[in-house]
Design a protein around this nucleic acid. Sequence first.
DNA 1: CCAAAAGTGTTTTCTCTACACCCATGT
DNA 2: ACATGGGTGTAGAGAAAACACTTTTGG
Lengths: 234, 234
Amino acid sequence: MNHLYSKYPKHFHAVDCIIFGFDIAEKELKLLLIKRSFEPALGEWSLAGGFVREDESLDDAACRVLCTLTGLSELYMEQLYTYGEISRDPGARVISTAYFALIGIHELDPEIRKSNGAYWCSLSEIPDLIFDHRKMVDRALKELVEKVKVYPVGFELLPEKFTLVQLQNLYEAIYQRQVDKRNFRKKILSMNLLEKQEDKERETSKKGAWYYRFNEEKYKELTRNGFFFNLVVS
Amino acid sequence: MNHLYSKYPKHFHAVDCIIFGFDIAEKELKLLLIKRSFEPALGEWSLAGGFVREDESLDDAACRVLCTLTGLSELYMEQLYTYGEISRDPGARVISTAYFALIGIHELDPEIRKSNGAYWCSLSEIPDLIFDHRKMVDRALKELVEKVKVYPVGFELLPEKFTLVQLQNLYEAIYQRQVDKRNFRKKILSMNLLEKQEDKERETSKKGAWYYRFNEEKYKELTRNGFFFNLVVS
DNA sequence: CCAAAAGTGTTTTCTCTACACCCATGT
DNA sequence: ACATGGGTGTAGAGAAAACACTTTTGG
C-alpha cells in the first residue's frame, strides 16, 4: 500500500531522552549525558538518542534507547515534544521526539553507565550540548516542575524507602527554592499516600529519620474517586 | 552529509490539526472536521492533515495545512503530541504530530470552508474518525481545559469584542460544567485585563450586555512582572 | 406591565502561610 | 553535655465558595 503515499518525502526520525536522577547525598537533580560516539559532533555532549526503526513505535524506540543505555526497563517515561526544524541536525534533516525519564540514581549500575560513556551531570553545570538538546532539557525541566506539583512522579526519583527529609530535598531541588518543612509534611501526610515504615534511616543523623513508602495502590484508588495529588507548597 | 545516517530508515511524517471554534449562539465548542479526499479511508471523517515536506519544519507544515484549509494565518496553534504507533495509518507507517488550533468561528469564511469539505461539528456529536484521530481530539480537549485555566487563550475563540456572558459561556463549554456568574466576573475583572467598551451587544437581550476587549499588551506587561493568569472558578 | 437576560456584594469556609521550640542520639 | 539534624502545632490572612435580588428594556 506504500504507493498511496509515494509522492511524499520521508524523513529520518530520532528519539532523544532527557534522563533525570536525584542525588540524595548532594541534594541535587542530575542529568544523564553521553559523549556522542558518531559523526557529526562526535565526542561532544548530548542526550541519549537513537534513530527510530521501521518495526518499532516511537515509544518503543525511546524505551530501547533508555534500556540500552541503562540496562533498566519499566522506568517512568513520557513523551515531551517533537523538534522538527529543518536544520536542527547538521548531519541531515532529522525530526526528533524528546522523551523525559525519571530514574533512581542508585538503580543505575556505575559500570554499565561508564561503559556507555554516560555521566551524571549537575543541573548547574550542564556543558554545551549538541544541536537543540539544551532546549529539550529546558523544556523537560519546566515540565518536571509542573508534573511533580500534581502527579506523584517525584517518587520515581527516590528509592522505595525514603525519608520525608529526602522527599523535601527532592522537591526543593526541582522547584529550585526552599520550602517550609512543617507545611510540606502537613500537606504530603494529609494525602495519606505515604506509609511510615518500622525502621529509620541512620546515615545522616544521630536521631535517625523514619522511612516512608509511597502507596501506589492507594493513589490509584483515590484517583478513581476524584482525588487529585497536590504538592504545591510555600 | 546524508550518507552519515544512510543506514537508518526514513519515515513518512504527517501533521494533523485539531481545530476548535466556539459557537457563541449555541454556546458550544465545535471541532472542524473534513471528509478525507484520498485513499485510504477516502470519504471518512478526519482531522485536517498533510504530509511534512522536505523544505519545511513541523510547525510550518502545520501552519500550511491550517492556512490552506481556512485561508487564515496568524492563528493560535500549539504542538500537542506525536503519534508513532507502527500501524496507526493503514496506508503506510506514518508518524503524525498533532497540533491544536483555536479560531474564531466567525473568522472562517463559510464558502472557503465548504469548498474544502470542512464542517463544524459539535463536541457531543463527533462521528467516528479515521485512525487515531479520536485519541488526538481527546488529548487536545484535555490540554485545552488545562490551558484556559492558566493562559488567556480562550480569547482566541471569541471575537475582538465580546461580553462577559459570552466569555463565561465559553468557559462553561470548555469545562463542561456551570460556573458561578458572580465569582467568574469577580475573578476575571480583578485581573484588570479586560477593557470595557462604550457599546453593548443587543442581539441576545433587551437590556444589552457591555462589550469588553482583552488587552494583550497589559497581559504581557503583567507577565513580565511575575503575574499569572488564573481562571479556575467554582 | 411583564418576561428575559444582565448585573451586582457579602458572609462563610477553607486553604495557605508564617513561624520557633523540643526531641533523640552519638560522640 | 552538647552538637546535629528530625520532628511537631497554631494563629492570622487571604482566597474560594455559596448564595438572591435588582436593573433594564422591548414587546
